[in-house]
């Protein structure tokens, strides 16, 4: 990587695994769970967060020396809210059905703790380029979990991926369904998202013992 020094590249790769915002830092859980019943919604949500966090981190980083620390939370909220309004309007214009599915969760990107968390922890103390990389990295780590959860829930719950019937047709009994396979409708219910994330955490921490918590 010619463009990125080793330290900068670490900003992007760290949040993807060992410092993942969802499974390690416990940030941004709410939206991760509520919208992952299908893969498409997960992908759109990840892209929205990528945009908001990438741009937001740069804006906050540029303003970091002129924001009085007492009112910084309100300033940060206004910056995020403005960016989220852009995302929301774009979604409503080009993907109306999807924006109905995501319902209030687009708006809730504003209070997604991942965004405020990265502003506070990184953008307020670092330059714009590094903040941008940090934002992209963390949003990608968030997106990765969303997409994994969305993938399993849609595949096991409705037997489709992005709406394509990859396992055959449940009504005409083709593909896997011809040998008696049934969809697990339970996966579509929201509590299963929690359990899937719990299992991802379990797998990740079994592979990397350093991440194991005490009680």
């Amino acid at each position: 990587m010619g463009l990125l020094s080793k330290k900068d590249a670490k900003l992007i790769t760290d949040p993807l695994a060992d410092n993942n915002p969802i499974t390690i830092q416990v940030l941004g859980i709410c939206s991760a769970l509520a919208i992952t019943a299908e893969l498409k919604a997960s992908i759109v949500m990840s892209i929205s967060v990528l945009f908001v966090l990438g741009v937001g981190n740069v804006v906050i980083s540029l303003m970091r020396n002129i924001i009085p620390s007492k009112i910084r939370i309100i300033v940060q909220l206004i910056v995020v809210a403005a960016l989220v309004i852009i995302v929301d309007q774009v979604l409503k214009a080009f993907a109306y059905e999807l924006s109905k599915t995501l319902s209030v969760f687009v708006g809730l990107i504003i209070t997604n703790c991942i965004i405020m968390g990265r502003f506070e922890a990184f953008a307020l103390g670092n330059g714009p380029w590094r903040s941008f990389l940090d934002g992209i990295g963390n949003a990608a780590g968030y997106g990765a979990i969303l997409i994994i959860v969305g993938f399993f829930r849609e595949l096991l719950g409705s037997g489709t991926l992005l709406g394509f019937k990859v396992l055959g047709d449940p009504i005409e009994k083709t593909g896997l369904y011809s040998i008696g396979y049934e969809n697990n409708g339970f996966m579509l219910l929201s509590p299963m998202a929690l359990i899937v994330v719990g299992i991802i955490i379990w797998v990740q921490r079994t592979r990397n013992k350093a991440l194991v918590e005490d009680h």
Binding site: M192, L194, G198, I199, I201, W202, R205, K209, D214, H215
Partner: peptide, 18 residues
């Protein structure tokens, strides 16, 4: 050990939600 803390909390919350 790998489930301690966050992992088991997620799963308990899932069961409570059910």
């Amino acid at each position: 050990p790998a489930l301690r803390g966050l992992g088991i909390t997620f799963i308990i919350t899932g069961l409570m939600a059910i």
